[in-house]
């Protein structure tokens, strides 16, 4: 029972992390119609900048700040220099150009920081574990990630449903041309939305840095899963991104945690483990295929 509780918390934490990534990706898709494979590179840049600044200054908060600003600034620069020209193009061109951006970013980071993985730990005040219920210690840092992610989700909800910017964003998602016709400076809005998405990716990178290894190629690993999330949730929908992130986070964590043990009941141990590991790798993709076949536009389609 306590094992299940711990696994559910793990699933929640992974889901929250995926949401931070998916929110930016889905916003950019919903409003600008851009598939941005380089979103994973912004995540990597956030993680590197945060780890580097933390190691230089010794302060986790300064590192976090560095990660956020690096991702946001570079994200907006990328938007202004390249991606802006892709909004009107078809998805294929977008996939290819941003694929090129990934190759460039990976190599650039490797040249600046070297191939060695970089890592700064969590601050002392977030280290260690607390007992959430007796007998189940859980890392404080992971709890902090869950709290941050839920706060960001609430903040995004308020931003989008209660503010003028949010109104423009919603309008832009459904009637792209109309918003421009109303005299809104659409270019500025686009850059701001892209910057927000990059900021969230940077936040995800900076927060995971102390947990995982900061290394070249880390962006692609999470990128593919993030795409699964937003496709399941419905492209362009923040609500869908949240639902998809939680679903994928839970399915991935729970199949990994329980599938091999379940298979052991019916198969020899070595085969059960190999099959279990293989199946749990495939689980989120199977989930995506099922959802797409059932609802080709995802669970919460943005343009109804």
């Amino acid at each position: 029972m306590t094992l299940l509780l711990e696994q559910l918390l793990n699933g929640l934490q992974f889901g929250v992390m995926l949401f931070l990534m998916a929110a930016g990706l889905t916003l950019v898709f919903g409003i600008m119609g851009l598939i941005n494979l380089a979103h994973g590179s912004l995540y990597m840049i956030g993680a590197y900048a945060a780890a580097w600044a933390t190691l230089q200054t010794g302060s986790f908060l300064l590192g976090l700040l560095a990660g956020l600003s690096a991702a946001a600034v570079l994200g907006m620069a990328l938007e202004a220099a390249i991606l802006r020209r892709l909004y009107a193009r078809d998805h294929l061109d977008q996939v290819l150009a941003t694929f090129g951006v990934i190759l460039f970013c990976n190599e650039a980071v490797a040249m600046i920081f070297g191939r060695q993985p970089l890592m700064a730990g969590p601050p002392p005040w977030l280290s260690g574990a607390v007992e959430i219920v007796p007998g189940v210690p859980y890392p404080v840092y992971r709890l902090a990630i869950i709290a941050t992610g839920l706060l960001v989700a609430a903040g995004l909800y308020v931003l989008i449903s209660r503010t003028r910017i949010g109104m423009l964003v919603r309008a832009g998602a459904t009637h792209r041309e109309l918003v421009g016709a109303l005299g809104v400076r659409i270019g500025l809005l686009y850059t701001a939305v892209f910057g927000l998405g990059a900021l969230l990716a940077g936040l995800a990178g900076a927060l995971t840095g102390p947990l995982l290894a900061v290394q070249v190629g880390m962006g692609e690993r999470i990128l593919i899963t993030t795409f699964v999330v937003i496709v399941i949730g419905g492209l362009g929908s923040i609500r869908g991104a949240l639902a998809g992130a939680m679903l994928v986070g839970m399915v991935d964590t729970l199949t990994r945690g329980f599938l091999p043990a379940t298979l052991r009941a019916v198969l020899p141990a070595s085969e059960a483990d190999a099959l279990g590991a293989g199946l749990s790798s495939m689980a989120v993709f199977i989930l995506m295929a099922i959802v797409l076949l059932w609802r080709p536009r995802g669970l919460f389609p943005a343009h109804a």
């Binding site: 210690p137 990994r256 945690g257």
Partner: peptide
Amino acid sequence: GEIYTRLDQTDYAAEMAQIRA
């Protein structure tokens, strides 16, 4: 206990829970 993790995996929270159990 014997667990095979994924080659593309960097979050081992689920495995930690199983080790503890």
